[in-house]
Write a protein that binds this DNA or RNA. Sequence first.
DNA 1: CGGATGCGCTACCCAAAGGTTGCACATCCC
DNA 2: GGGATGTGCAACCTTTGGGTAGCGCATCCG
Lengths: 114, 114
Amino acid sequence: MTRTSEGEQAPEDVLVALADPIRREVLAVLAREGDATSTSLAASLPITRQAVAKHLAVLDRAGLVRAHRAGREVLYEADLQPLRRTTRWMDTLATQWEHHLNAIKDLAEGATGS
Amino acid sequence: MTRTSEGEQAPEDVLVALADPIRREVLAVLAREGDATSTSLAASLPITRQAVAKHLAVLDRAGLVRAHRAGREVLYEADLQPLRRTTRWMDTLATQWEHHLNAIKDLAEGATGS
DNA sequence: CGGATGCGCTACCCAAAGGTTGCACATCCC
DNA sequence: GGGATGTGCAACCTTTGGGTAGCGCATCCG
């Protein structure tokens, strides 16, 4: 059933999921060619079906894919919302940190100037 | 010397660097309190100086910090530019993928409708 | 019904990541 | 000069992550 736990996708999990090149490729394939099963994905990738399943589990934990059962196969669908949310989160962080850095730089210049 | 190789920070490296909670914390401390050494950072963190140095090496590879030698100590400075560049990269990816997904959805609806 | 196809799960393997200790070397400062 | 402080580096340990193989079970379809 691959867990599909509700609501628990922190931006941290998205970063971890996206840090792996194969998982990025899985997402890309899912976006390019639509829903797919672990078996069909394994055909386009240099790894086995079981390995793909593990990556899909990581992507699922991050909320980047969702699983739908269709008869005997399980289709995975990409969901880009957590990705968008994560970019916003990172941008906010960057802005915060830049503020801190600027404040520090101003202090340093003040000290030098006096 | 920590390498400080020029120009080679791919967005992938930034993702890997940011995937670790301790490295995010290191960046946060660097932004909040300004330049710091591996030794001083280790004081605020639950790990040894050497472990911090390894994390700083990863951050350096991603271009997120730069090292400056000052006498016998080495100060690390945060650089948020690669972070900004990475968020833009991710956003572009998200847009591309969403386009693909929409195209696929349109096709599916067309097929259903005919 | 019975073979083929697809999934889930477990055990297992190997490499890499994160962490520590220990020590040699440079630098500061009394 | 010589102790204190800070860094760099190498060896080593342990955990985790990515990957495979094997098997049991459900589902499809001739």
